[in-house]
Amino acid sequence: MKTNFKKIATDGVITQNPTLKLVLGTCPTLALTTMAMNGIYMGLAVTFVLICSNVLISLLRKLIPSQVRIPAFVLIIATFVTLVRLLLDKLLPDAYEVLGLYLPLIVVNCIILARAESFASKNGVIASATDGLFMGIGFTLALTLMGAFREILGAGAVFGITLWNFQIGFFSSSAGSFFTYALFIAIFSLVSSTISKSKRKKLSRLNGENLTAEV
């Protein structure tokens, strides 16, 4: 079986972006996007866990009986989350402090469990690792962009560098995080639907079909 790496990559970052398209892992997204740097920390931690757990689950996919696969997945994920926690505590104590409770909660993060269930337990090792990498990149990008948006408007800064002394407090409140999330999903859907429409138009022109009659 030949793996389509290009499709895995576009799926992870765009067409199945875990945050903006599948709406998974909303809890850390809503809570941690007050600053752009938080998004990067959280994204990298999740990416690491995602790659490692995908690889291990993919390796063990023929050994794990399907009746007990969820506990087995959780066990594997929890192992890597513990590893990340200990590493961050030692190497980046700031990040450990900021992420706080949301770091151990990666264990029950929907994105990781969803990828384990729907991808890693059905595909080969290299494909699973690529999937983990690009899903992680998609998650990191979404969180960082949302964090930057909220930080610029809510605190007048980006990545901790003050831009101007002007704040709209709404965007750093929790109501603002729901609002920002909805706004990003709306913009993302608008852009992706426009792109796919224009692609379909191009295809139909190539095939000499008339799509307008169909619509």
Binding site: Q167, I168, G169, F170, F171, S173, A175, G176
Partner: peptide
């Protein structure tokens, strides 16, 4: 409410 949450402080 938007004004209240943003500029009250």
């Amino acid at each position: 409410i938007f004004i209240f949450m943003s500029f009250q402080a």
